[in-house]
Design a protein around this nucleic acid. Structure first.
Lengths: 229, 229
DNA sequence: GATATTCATTGACTTATGTCAAAAGCGCGT
DNA sequence: ACGCGCTTTTGACATAAGTCAATGAATATC
């Protein structure tokens, strides 16, 4: 259907002419996934990539015994699944819709053509991949060099920053998802939130609402200068 | 100096015309770093990126208390430090020479020009970044979903595969570096190698030589189906 | 509106791995 | 060959976080 109205709003296509937008629109395919539906699995052949139009998607790794590590959660306008387009081979991770999600799909071959004729599209895609590398570096750092309280603090501060430093936060994902994003398990998240409350760093209603009481304290935790009792 | 003789051998520049190679050569600067010399630090402004000509470079994150996590180790022909070129901002990690190392440096602005006129250079760079994303995904998976014996097994198998499944391996890095690459500490590496020897999976001379005795056993360890006693 | 189902919390326990310290092996230069 | 440093190994110990299990709260289902 009328993908054309979405194309110009996608950051990846900023700076392209209306003709190119129309061309892009002509090669894409729209798809809808319902909550928990698999979009692709690790090891699948990647014959193109996706951009989220509405809804949210998680991209994750799975261990043989079922533990998952979320690599990222994507929302409207964000592309995913590009690695096989440029590096060949297969998807390095799984992707699943977190809720009812609309995406547009770009077949590999036609996109490769397009990018060859469009330096600014190439530059945009390079920027997308570079930003993702930066985020992955941060995730690796977190997993390897920080303990869970530090990662959780960093995540709360990140949420707060997204809402220009609002102190009242609403988690946009369940505790289980949050645990998987931070490389831990829900029980650990629970215990740490309890300890953070005990130290008056935050106030939690036990659901998805958290109020930041001591931002500097959380920053110290996130950087590792401070530890929880 | 005569960078021109190196340019055509670099995978990033495969598929370019000799004229383009010459052009690339005209904008690069050669630099030499001695063992342990810092190439750039996290947070530095990135005004260009590098390609290793000879020697080896480690790119790593550092925690406030000095623990390091190596993101990757690069050898001849491999580029590093590209993220700020395309995503702006600063280097997300530190880079240091592991030994006497020669690199060529590409100033950001002239490279950006070049890439706009060279679709195949853009495609090559997209491939480089995509492959790196795949490796980072694997590292995240390892750190989050595997225990150290699994990561170490995977690394030994990787070394073996590089030498077409040779069973006699020579570690190319010290145990301390290996630990930092696998997200652990030298003591843990030592203990695990001892346990692997005890189970006759490997034979180690205590230095940098390891012989693989039971490849399937290591594969089971790497995938998590098996555990060390 | 009552019950089923999922999700969050809490407790007791286990375990992998980090910390600290000491000893042992090896390389190196005088 | 000898002692000085560095890396590796080994030991005793500490601890963060995972596992398992039970309870409680919240939401959905009939």
């Amino acid at each position: 259907m009328d993908a054309i109205k979405h194309i110009p709003t996608i950051p990846l296509f900023q700076g392209l002419t209306p003709e190119h937008h129309a061309h892009v629109a002509s090669i894409v395919v729209e798809k809808v996934y319902r909550r928990n539906q698999v979009i692709f699995s690790e090891g699948d052949e990647g014959n193109g990539f996706y951009v989220v139009i509405s809804g949210r998607v998680k991209v994750f790794k799975l261990s043989p015994d079922g533990k998952e590590q979320i690599l990222h959660i994507l929302g409207a306008g964000e592309p995913f699944g590009e690695v096989p387009v440029f590096a060949g081979e297969r998807f390095p991770a799984h992707a699943e819709a977190l809720e009812e999600t609309r995406v547009i799909f770009f077949p590999r071959a036609s996109f490769a053509d397009l990018i060859k004729k469009n330096p600014s599209l190439a530059m945009n895609m390079l920027a997308v991949l570079s930003r993702r590398l930066r985020r992955f570096s941060a995730l690796i750092e977190d997993l390897s060099l920080k303990e869970v309280p530090g990662r959780l603090s960093a995540y709360l501060l990140y949420l707060s920053d997204k809402k220009n430093r609002e102190t009242s936060l609403t988690l946009d994902i369940s505790k289980a998802q949050l645990a998987s994003l931070l490389g831990t398990i829900p029980e650990t998240i629970s215990r740490i939130l309890t300890r953070m409350s005990a130290e008056e760093l935050i106030e939690s209603d036990g659901h998805r609402n958290i109020k930041i009481l001591d931002r500097p304290g959380l920053e110290e935790l996130a950087s590792g200068e401070r530890k929880l009792l």
